[in-house]
């Protein structure tokens, strides 16, 4: 042991200037666990018999397995949610240097939540299209564990949760997904002897072999209120509902809430004993043709009026008017 002792002393002395250069930080693209590092030096020199070549012995060391993982939310921002099912998307990346499976845990209880979701299941993006496909993407069964991911491989994970009824528009909530190396987690440097690739040791890296990310969702409850009113102009300059009087109907569609509604179509029948006045349909004061297909509106005596408002954001209102005459 004297030999080894001498080396240690020597090295410690010689190395004191290079502390800053030493890093135990894991490189995501690190050498694969189980790789052999072999070093051989060769000397040539002039001796008595001319040039001589001699090799050193070869020293071999095997790279051990580093356990590291990252988790990120793939959602661009809070997901718009309403009572019912919601899907949050995450990515889990094996940043270690050997194949590793990760146990997944979804936690709906995050400080600051205005309500809490109910976690239904965790699924992996089996068909790798980035979108949760019910019946296609594999739902993990407890303990929810990914398949073994090769070093540097990433997997897309979906957390399927239910937003309870009774939440208010604009309420926010977060769901936390945690991935933990199946081999084990702990403070960086924790060693799991023999648990690595090919019997090598596994050692916990800088990520502690566990990583969490949160995805958020915001409740967007959108309501549509329709208000219909009528004004009458009789032929004599008054407002009596007499034959020949023109009735102007006004329908206000008011969309409220933080979300939006799609394909909003407002339709109304022409009242009995009245006749639609051709060319009077208007949206926001702008005339629409009675014909179908050329603009948002269509109108006829038989079918009534119909205006396709398309997607309408919360906080806006649209006003539709049309005239009929009393028969």
């Amino acid at each position: 042991m004297k030999y080894a002792q001498s080396l240690i002393q020597l090295g410690a002395t010689a190395l004191t200037v290079s502390v800053a250069g030493v890093s135990s930080a894991a490189l995501a693209e690190g050498v694969d666990a189980g790789s052999l590092i072999e070093n051989t030096a060769t000397a040539t020199y002039d001796g008595g018999a001319g040039s001589v070549t001699v090799d050193s012995n070869t020293v071999t060391v095997r790279v051990d397995e580093l356990l590291d993982v990252t988790t990120t939310s793939l959602d661009a921002g809070p997901i718009s949610a309403a009572p019912g099912e919601v899907v949050l998307t995450f990515e889990v990346t094996n940043t270690g240097n050997g194949p590793e499976a990760f146990e997944l845990t979804a936690n709906p209880t995050v400080p600051g939540n205005e309500f809490e979701t109910v976690i239904e299941s965790i699924a992996v993006d089996t068909n790798e299209n980035g979108v949760y496909d019910e019946g296609v993407d594999e739902i993990l069964t407890g303990p929810e564990t990914t398949s073994s991911l090769a070093a540097d491989d990433a997997i897309t994970v979906f957390v399927i949760a239910t937003v309870p009824s009774g939440v208010a528009d604009g309420d926010q909530s977060q769901v936390q997904l945690t991935a933990a190396a199946q081999t084990g987690t702990g403070t960086p440097g924790t060693v799991f002897a023999g648990a690595g690739v090919g019997g090598a040791d596994a050692v916990v890296g800088t990520t502690a072999a566990t990583a969490s990310a949160t995805g958020s969702l915001a409740v967007g409850i959108t309501t549509v209120d329709l208000t219909k009113s009528a004004t009458i102009a009789d032929p004599f300059g008054g407002d009596s509902a007499v034959p020949g009087a023109v009735v102007t109907f006004t329908i206000v569609a008011e969309v409220a809430g933080s979300g939006s509604v799609d394909d909003l179509v407002v339709a109304d029948a022409i009242p009995t004993d009245t006749t639609y006045v051709a060319g009077t349909l208007a949206l926001g004061g702008a005339s629409l043709t009675d014909a179908a297909g050329d603009d948002a509106g269509q109108a006829s005596n038989a079918s009534g009026i119909s205006v396709d408002l398309g997607t309408v954001s919360g906080g806006t209102s649209q006003t539709i008017t049309f005239d009929v005459t009393i028969n």
Binding site: I8, A12, L15, V19, V22, L27, I37, V63, D64
Partner: peptide, 18 residues
């Protein structure tokens, strides 16, 4: 400080002295 030890456990990022 730095100690030179037998390379029983080595991972990417570690410094080896050959």
């Amino acid at each position: 400080r730095i100690e030179l030890v037998e390379p029983d456990l080595i991972v990417p990022g570690d410094r080896l002295v050959f």
